[in-house]
Structures are given as C-alpha cells and as structure tokens.
Amino acid sequence: MAARTENTVLVQAPMDLVWRMTNDVASWPELFSEYAAAEILEQGENRVRFRLTTHPDEAGRTWSWVSERHSDPASRTVRAERVETGPFEYMRIHWDYTEVDGGVRLRWVQDFAMKPAAPVDDAGMAERINRNTPVQQRRIKEIVERAAKGEG
C-alpha cells in the first residue's frame, strides 16, 4: 500500500522570487519552521543532494535524512527523493509552480510508503503530512511575500 498527499498555496510574489527562495535549500532552516539545519552535500546544475535535520520533537528526538532535488527551471518543476529513507520504503516529492492571479500557485505532491516497522502507517503519515504541510506553506507564503514587498 502507498499514499499520496497534495497541498497547494498561492504566493502573491513574482515567479522568479518564489522559485529562487524556495529552491535555496541552504536557507530552508529560515524558510521552514521544522528544520534546524540544511547541509549541502553535493551540488550540480539543477541538482542538489542535502541533509536535513529537524528541531527536536515533543519527545526530544531529532530526525535527519539525505534527499536529492532535481529542478527544471524551464518547466518550473522540482522532483525530490529521499536517499536515506528512514521509516519510509520511499518518499518522492514533486513541486510545481504555476503563475496565477499575479502570484504563484505552489503545489507539493508527496508519494510515499512506510516500512512495516515504522511507528506510523501510510494513512497516519498522510494525516501528519496534511496537517504540517499547510502550516509550512503558510509560513513560506508570508516570508516570500514580505521579501517581495522589500520588508525582509
């Protein structure tokens, strides 16, 4: 069994700014509230391999994994996959950016399956992702929109 989530946010800012800020993985600890660190391991043209580390959770545990992102500036899409899968059998993420109404619709689709020994099943992880992703997207929207207005 596998799961899929899809979450969207409209960012009222120019495409180039939204693209640049959200694809600057090194700045993700400022952009996302859940990440304490983002370490760039390898980088090439339109490709980055990186390690993310979370802030401690309510039990004091931090989580860390390696992912790789491939961006396509022409189509304004990004594909990512966890290299170190942790509790996931696999985790694939697709971001697409669409210009609409003077802003950018940013859509994240996550396809994944949990390992049998994971502390949560596919449905439970989908519920967590669908609860957290809108929080992160609202934060990104606010930060990018402030930058677009020259306030940050």
Rank of each mutant, 00 (worst) to 15 (best):
R69L: 00
R69H: 01
R69Y: 00
H70W: 10
H70K: 01
H70V: 09
S71H: 03
S71P: 00
S71M: 07
S71L: 12
D72M: 07
D72A: 05
D72H: 08
P73A: 10
A74G: 08
A74I: 07
S75W: 03
S75C: 12
S75I: 05
S75V: 09
R76K: 15
R76T: 11
T77F: 10
V78C: 08
V78E: 07
V78S: 04
V78Q: 05
V78L: 08
R79E: 09
R79P: 01
R79C: 01
A80Y: 00
A80R: 00
A80H: 00
A80E: 00
A80M: 01
E81Y: 02
E81L: 05
R82G: 04
R82Y: 12
R82V: 05
V83E: 06
V83M: 14
V83S: 04
V83G: 03
E84T: 13
E84N: 08
E84I: 07
T85N: 14
T85Y: 10
G86R: 06
G86K: 04
G86Y: 11
P87K: 13
P87N: 11
F88E: 09
E89T: 11
E89N: 10
E89V: 01
E89L: 03
E89Q: 15
Y90N: 10
Y90E: 10
M91A: 04
R92G: 02
I93K: 01
H94Y: 13
H94Q: 10
H94D: 14
H94S: 11
W95I: 10
W95S: 03
W95Q: 02
D96C: 15
D96S: 15
D96R: 11
D96L: 15
D96N: 14
Y97G: 09
Y97I: 12
Y97V: 13
T98Y: 09
E99C: 15
V100I: 14
V100K: 02
D101I: 05
G102W: 11
G102M: 08
G102S: 08
G103M: 10
G103W: 09
G103H: 08
G103L: 12
V104S: 07
V104P: 02
V104W: 13
R105I: 02
R105Y: 04
L106G: 02
L106W: 04
R107G: 05
R107C: 10
W108D: 11
W108I: 08
V109Q: 09
V109M: 13
V109F: 07
V109R: 09
Q110F: 01
Q110R: 06
Q110E: 00
Q110V: 13
D111L: 01
D111V: 00
D111P: 08
D111R: 07
F112C: 02
A113M: 04
A113V: 00
A113F: 04
M114F: 03
M114A: 11
M114D: 04
M114W: 03
M114P: 05
K115W: 12
P116I: 13
P116N: 09
P116T: 09
A117H: 14
A117N: 13
A118D: 10
P119H: 13
P119N: 12
P119K: 13
D121H: 06
D121R: 03
D121C: 04
D122F: 02
D122I: 02
A123W: 06
G124W: 02
G124K: 02
